[in-house]
Simulated assay, not measured.
Amino acid sequence: MQPSSSSTSHPLRLLLGLFTLLLLGACATPPSFLADTDVIPVGSRIEFWVDHDDRGWRNSNLHIAFLPREMTGAEARRWAEGIGSRDAGLHWTRYYLLVTHPGHEKKTYRSSVHPLRAQPYEMTSHPAGHASR
């Protein structure tokens, strides 16, 4: 007795369906790049991701749920460095920001990976060795 085509097609359909889901997940659009000069609109969510020395990359417990004013990528980076030192006392060495714009599209942007601290002149806008006048 030969198996009917409907009994063998069910496992094949299931496998094809699983393969399709895996393929769609692999094709998900990665976040766009967030540059220091980019403007982050009001209402955006800013998440702070840190590379903990002993646990790898983690989403910090510090974030901005609803940005109250426009901010540039550079301002957001300086905010992250300031608050990052208070991240529950955990030791970390690198970070990046993940920004989700408001609205129905919820477009996501990700900054570069930055070291723990900005250079002093980045905080004051004066190059090293030049005193402000």
Rank of each mutant, 00 (worst) to 15 (best):
S32L: 15
S32K: 12
F33A: 09
F33R: 14
A35V: 09
A35Y: 15
T37D: 13
T37E: 14
V39Y: 11
V39L: 15
I40W: 06
P41V: 02
P41M: 01
S44W: 05
S44H: 02
R45S: 14
R45H: 15
I46N: 03
I46C: 08
E47S: 12
E47Q: 12
E47M: 11
F48L: 15
W49N: 05
H52F: 14
H52M: 03
D53V: 13
D54E: 10
D54P: 10
D54W: 09
R55E: 11
W57E: 00
R58Q: 09
R58W: 07
N59K: 12
S60N: 03
S60T: 03
S60R: 01
S60K: 02
N61G: 10
N61K: 09
L62S: 02
H63A: 13
I64K: 02
I64N: 00
A65Q: 08
F66Y: 14
L67F: 00
L67R: 02
L67P: 01
L67H: 00
L67Y: 00
P68S: 02
E70K: 06
M71N: 01
M71G: 04
T72I: 03
A74S: 12
A74I: 06
E75G: 03
E75P: 01
A76L: 05
R77A: 11
R78T: 12
A80M: 07
A80T: 07
A80V: 06
E81D: 09
G82E: 07
G82N: 13
G82R: 10
I83M: 15
S85D: 15
R86H: 11
A88V: 06
G89Y: 07
